[in-house]
């Protein structure tokens, strides 16, 4: 094929794909500024004729969007902080500390990845009901405080830390906690950032478990609140698009700002084979 034609074809296809990927998101943003009923016209309008913030005002003033946003931030941040701490400690131990049964235990953990999380959800609900955590923030947070994926990711990365460094510190009389805090953690910083973004995004977007454990509106996270609004307000497309913007925008911006770390983590986590 003629190279100029090939170049036009390849870039044309990329442009077309990008349009398909972004159109729904851009359309969501545009419709969110239309007055009620503004999107229900033929031909479907692309841009709002009279942009308005009314949908956002209604969502925050009457639909509890502010509290959903707060709940999402709180729950996702808490999951991120706890799981970061626990996964870092465990991943480091699996990579660098010697103990009997280390390899076998790690293999058992990775093997457990074949079990879909939903298998655990029914008894987990009963367990949390028994200890009084159903319909509370803790009910969403606690099961997410450690993940096999996170431990795996940290272990992969921490294996690159030279043993001599840790041995030298031990000979100097440093305790294991000090070695972890002052030598290991600074070296793990890149994987910490990656894992933090991954965890936060996953917690923010999570749907099924919060839907099960949060039985009352006051603790709803954004996806649960939005799904329940969408059932009540099926016809109010402009309102629902504003709700979608509020749900999607924080994670989309976080991803854009930290994209390098996110994509790195995606690749690190997928070379299990």
């Amino acid at each position: 094929m003629n190279p100029r034609l090939a170049k036009a074809l390849i870039n044309g296809l990329l442009l077309g794909g990008t349009l398909v990927a972004l159109f729904p998101l851009l359309w969501m943003l545009s419709v969110s500024f239309m007055p009620a009923g503004g999107a229900s016209a033929l031909p479907p309008p692309l841009l709002p004729a009279h942009p308005t913030m009314e949908n956002y005002r209604v969502l925050f003033a009457h639909a509890g969007m502010g509290s959903y946003l707060f709940n999402s931030l709180l729950v996702s941040s808490a999951i991120t902080v706890f799981s970061l701490a626990f996964n870092l400690m465990a991943g480091y131990a699996f990579a660098k500390l010697r103990f009997a049964g280390r390899e076998r235990l790690f293999q058992a953990l990775v093997g457990a990845l074949v079990i879909p999380a939903q298998v655990a959800m029914l008894p987990l609900f009963l367990l949390l009901k028994y200890i009084g955590l159903v319909n509370s923030y803790a009910g969403v947070i606690v099961p997410g405080m450690a993940t096999v994926f996170g431990i795996f990711l940290v272990r992969q990365y921490a294996r690159g830390i030279p043993d001599e460094l840790l041995e030298a510190a031990r000979i100097d009389g440093a305790g294991e906690w000090r070695i972890f805090g002052q030598i290991v953690l600074p070296l793990l910083k890149p994987i910490m950032v990656t894992l933090a973004i991954f965890t936060f995004l996953a917690a923010w977007n999570d749907f099924m478990w919060p839907l099960i454990v949060l039985t009352g509106q006051e603790h709803y996270t954004l996806p649960i609140g939005l799904a329940s609004l969408a059932r009540e307000h099926a016809q109010d497309s402009e309102l629902m698009m504003a709700g979608s913007v509020i749900t999607v925008l924080p994670v989309l911006l976080l991803f854009l700002a930290m994209q390098r770390y996110y994509l790195e983590g995606l690749l690190l986590g997928s070379v299990k084979g």
Binding site: G17, T18, A21, L22, P24, L25, W27, M28, V31, A39, L201, W204, N205, F207, L222, P223, I224, L226, A227, A230, S237, M240, M241, G243, S244, T247, V248, V251, L252, F255, L256, Q259, Y262, L263
Partner: peptide
Amino acid sequence: TALFAPVVTTVVATAVIWRYL
């Protein structure tokens, strides 16, 4: 980045968009 963007969005929110599209 553009082609990857849908991955990081929330399923519920984008499913709502598709319902209207």
